[in-house]
Write a protein that binds this DNA or RNA. Structure first.
Lengths: 252, 252
DNA sequence: AGTGTTTATCGTCAAGCAGACGACTATGAT
DNA sequence: ATCATAGTCGTCTGCTTGACGATAAACACT
């Protein structure tokens, strides 16, 4: 039977990005201001159409580079350079999620170390890192007291799913190192966990856990005092990607 | 700016299903025989086009019902009736994954109790439950000695991802009960874990673990001897969906 | 009726890990 | 010199797990 174009409805396919980082002890996501209708002027997740000859992961990596200048990391290589971790999150395809047409969005999750200010087409006022609670609270008020409109489309749901994925994934994988610069201290890694989970962790037990897990951290030999206090050993991410037993997220 | 249809390439969007069950102590997946090119006559995962007015989850539930007669389970309700657990797995969009056209497939994972023989358009020879190792081994031979061609398209990858999702998810959730009938014994649940993980578990430690986890199992009061031996208590799935601490998968 | 087989269920023990927390160390700031 | 800050090493206790002995209740034989 020959291929019949009328047998299926045409869709637009986009990738949307949940780009997370830790800034000033808070879990932040990249948001861009929409320049066009619908939701003109509202904050949204970065994203765009998948091109005709492009894989989904390629499209996500391209959008990530366009918005942040980061290169996505090859998943086969351990996270240790300036590249961000990038993975598929979920796909959103409600028929009414875009009022213009039928759009299916393949959301991706990117984890990045703290970066310089974002750029969106070179216009800094149209892109920012915002704490995820600020982006997710409906009808709240921002840091400057101005009212904050909810994210465009179903992006609040996507962001929420991405944050939940990140929260659970750092439990049983070494992914938290993706939030850190190439060399980091145990305390910096602990502050990542504390920011992502929104809890305080015991520095002594955390230190025992991460240094005692084989393959998680590799000492570089150097030390730093950039956090103040006693100099701390510097580490790089080890080859291990799975944490067994996992890092336990405190209750409540 | 008005909507410009030339701004994005059109895609076909499908849902493909990884339907898993446990039959005769083996993890099995539903496969259907393709009636048309490409890959005519080869085994594939069930699936089909998403309709113009349909959500992705709706499309997956519809395909599941068409292929198996099962109703998908509302995720908000605990798994305890004949409905299958259904969740989104991942999305596959390589430009060359379908030689005819650009198709993005949103794969879903369904877990079902052992069911009567499947139906595919009423023709039993075109649908079957096959052990997942049989479907995944490339160029192997089936139970009857006939050569087995690999699954169509990228369905071996999708099936592999679905199996891996199921294997990891029963560790930390009560999802293994989705493979069981509404009432089941601890031994039957244990055989589910053994089939999905491909390991042998200690019956005494398993019993202690599952009966000691609050909210996992609810005794119905009845007993059964359908497995032979001493009568076993019957249970239903409790309300708990997360297992904490998780069920540990043995090493190696 | 007795014996063996099968499956279910309860108990014991030791090893490992996590949470709570004391103690000490090495920096910079005042 | 003293203090504040952060890092690192230990100790103790309780919980969970893995290994495995023992008992219980059914069925299938002889």
């Amino acid at each position: 039977m020959p291929y019949d174009p009328s047998a299926f409805p045409p869709f637009a396919v986009t990738v949307d990005l949940v780009v997370l980082t830790v800034r000033r002890h808070a879990l932040c996501a990249l948001a861009v201001r929409r320049g066009e209708a619908p939701f003109q002027g509202r904050w949204a997740l970065p994203g765009g159409f998948v091109r005709a000859d492009e894989d989904l992961a390629q499209a996500a990596a391209r959008e990530l580079a366009e918005e942040t200048g980061m290169r996505a990391h090859d998943p086969a290589v351990p996270v240790q350079d300036n590249g961000a971790h990038l993975e598929q999150l979920a796909t959103y395809g409600d028929p009414k999620r875009d009022p213009r047409m039928r759009v299916v969005s393949v959301a991706h999750l990117a984890l990045a170390p703290d970066l310089p200010a974002p750029r969106a087409g070179g216009d800094a006022s149209n892109a920012r890192w915002a704490p995820v609670e600020e982006l997710l609270e409906q009808g709240g008020y921002g840091r400057n007291g101005e009212p904050v409109a909810p994210l465009a489309f179903d992006h609040a749901q996507i962001l929420s799913d991405g944050v939940e994925r990140a929260r659970s994934k750092i439990e049983y994988s070494s992914l938290a190192t993706a939030f850190c610069p190439p060399e980091f201290t145990v305390g910096e890694l602990r502050r990542v966990y504390e920011a992502v989970w929104g809890v305080a962790l015991d520095p002594r037990n955390f230190h025992r856990k991460v240094t005692g897990t084989p393959g998680f951290l590799v000492p570089t030999g150097g030390t730093t005092t950039r956090q103040g206090g006693r100099p701390a050993q510097l580490f790089r991410a080890g080859g291990a990607t799975l944490l067994n037993p996992p890092m336990l997220r405190p209750e409540v």
